[in-house]
Design a protein around this nucleic acid. Sequence first.
DNA 1: ACTTCAATTGTTAACGATAACATAACCAAG
DNA 2: CTTGGTTATGTTATCGTTAACAATTGAAGT
Lengths: 341, 341
Amino acid sequence: MATPPTMKDVALAANVSVMTVSRAFKAGSTVAAAKRALIRQVADDLGYVFDSTASNLRLQRTGFVAVIIPSLNNANFADTVGALSAGLAADDLHVLLAYSNYDIAVEESLIAQLLRRRPEAIVLTGGQHTPGARRLLERAQIPVIETWDLPAHPIGHVVGFSNEATMEAMVDHLTSLGLSRLGFIGGDAAFDTRGSDRRRGFLAALAARGLPAHRLISGGQPPVKMAHGAVAMADLLQQFPDTEAVVCVSDLAAFGALSECQRRGVRVPQDIRIAGFGAFDIAQVCVPTLTTIDPACAEIGRRTAALIVSILRGDAPPAVPVTEAIIPHLRIGGSTVQPPR
Amino acid sequence: MATPPTMKDVALAANVSVMTVSRAFKAGSTVAAAKRALIRQVADDLGYVFDSTASNLRLQRTGFVAVIIPSLNNANFADTVGALSAGLAADDLHVLLAYSNYDIAVEESLIAQLLRRRPEAIVLTGGQHTPGARRLLERAQIPVIETWDLPAHPIGHVVGFSNEATMEAMVDHLTSLGLSRLGFIGGDAAFDTRGSDRRRGFLAALAARGLPAHRLISGGQPPVKMAHGAVAMADLLQQFPDTEAVVCVSDLAAFGALSECQRRGVRVPQDIRIAGFGAFDIAQVCVPTLTTIDPACAEIGRRTAALIVSILRGDAPPAVPVTEAIIPHLRIGGSTVQPPR
DNA sequence: ACTTCAATTGTTAACGATAACATAACCAAG
DNA sequence: CTTGGTTATGTTATCGTTAACAATTGAAGT
């Protein structure tokens, strides 16, 4: 057959009306059991596949939830999206995923594209957007959820945490070890807003303690990869050899830094301490394990999914925009504190 | 406004017909320049957003390419999907992504769901599918591309490589170093077909050389993570302490194995050699760097995108199913050969 | 002024599924 | 054998956009 069979073809073959075929495929509708079985059999024989594009148009509902993440290739965002998809699946909502490559201009164009697909909700990573993007989102008649951040001026709902605030606990940990010469790797670019939020938080924490805050090494444009962390560590060791501990924008950079230390015979944590961010798998496998901050990626996804479901399908959707604060957790590893043996 | 504005609203406001509005948004159609500008202005003022669900139905074309990967959280597949998306974007094709969690039963149900969305092509990872999945795909009137494998009986097009065959080069490398007591970590489960293909290839390569092939350690169910690699290495060192080299199903497992060696003071490569698969970032950052096989993930994505574009939008689509063989490359690292200093 | 042709705009009928309404079939009770 | 009330099925119109065709306009050529 040239064109795929439609309900009409099935109806013809089963000798019923199109409407009956439609009902036969919908649970809870009144069709004689025998007829329903017949219709499904006929449909299967014909190779009929339900056409959701038609249904979407008629019902004015697509079942799509648009999601924009900075990068596909990042275990943290993957965990969030995984939990999000899982949480939406039960309510027949499907993630329409796009990635911005850490560029809010790209994000804006993705938003414009995605909205044409008529998603029922849209999930963003981060709280910083172009004015154009804000405008599009404010006019879109769908729930907007910003994640992975606590924006000062949210567009709609929020499920996230303050990247800046996480650094307080980290610096607290390091200073409680009696350390005062602290460095930071990563987060310089105007692009990586979450990374520079962390750096800002780091600097604020140092300032609050009256500690020097000049040991900063760029990790280059995001995504900051392992190899960049290694290069940055080499820079740090050369420029500021007296550094006692370095906080990295992510565990990937931190592992790169650790590897550079290994290559140079610099002992971690004896000679220098290293901390990361994100609680990536590698943090608990590498030697020593990395001190890091667990931002509860999956929890963000779960809570976002639950929020969306309650808004779209729930009987009591929230009247005002919701902000759900996630509490990241400091996880101490061998890269800052030598385990007792 | 309760319902979002449609072309009709724009037409009314701009005092033209709906069709003229439609033309005003379509490049290359005959609308007076001034009128086109006016319509676009009016549309913008109203907050009009093009509704692709209606367009998709009318045109019988969605611009979707369905893609199923085993896991979101895997840099290899992420690289493939990234390159694929990029290659499709120019032709206004968008990836509709789903992940099977390494389960072909899940894959079948995803295929059924995705086909309802009327994708213009569908891309699968791997060449093993349930009979139900094959049936769905054979009847779907769209191009099917299997990737990351060279199936014996392809459903349609193929862009991939033989996981089994890659192991020949790896074993060749190890035996050329004079090693003969080789082990393998991972790939036991019936699920992870690519992993067990690699193990089969490993065993075949040993058999061809008359080498003993009993040093096999399960990595558990896929995805085999770093931590599993560490546990497996501990098993291997205990069960087969005379092992000279171990090939792991992925770099992640290999890094876990390497980390276990570090913890135990087993020197790599002096005491034991470790190899991985996938050319993940970590392979070239860790100390020592990992010997691995680069399956050219991005190349798979690029070639798949090019194939799809040529089929869907090209003037000379291939008459018969195409099989594009990708050539994976052995990359030797410090985990099998100590670098000269 | 009168064709002729191109450029521009309008009208109609789909695309495939489904809510809403209308009708037909059925069964039990009186 | 009616009547009343379910249950099962059919009919119509619609979601928003667009191809195909029809109609109108305007400018150039004679």
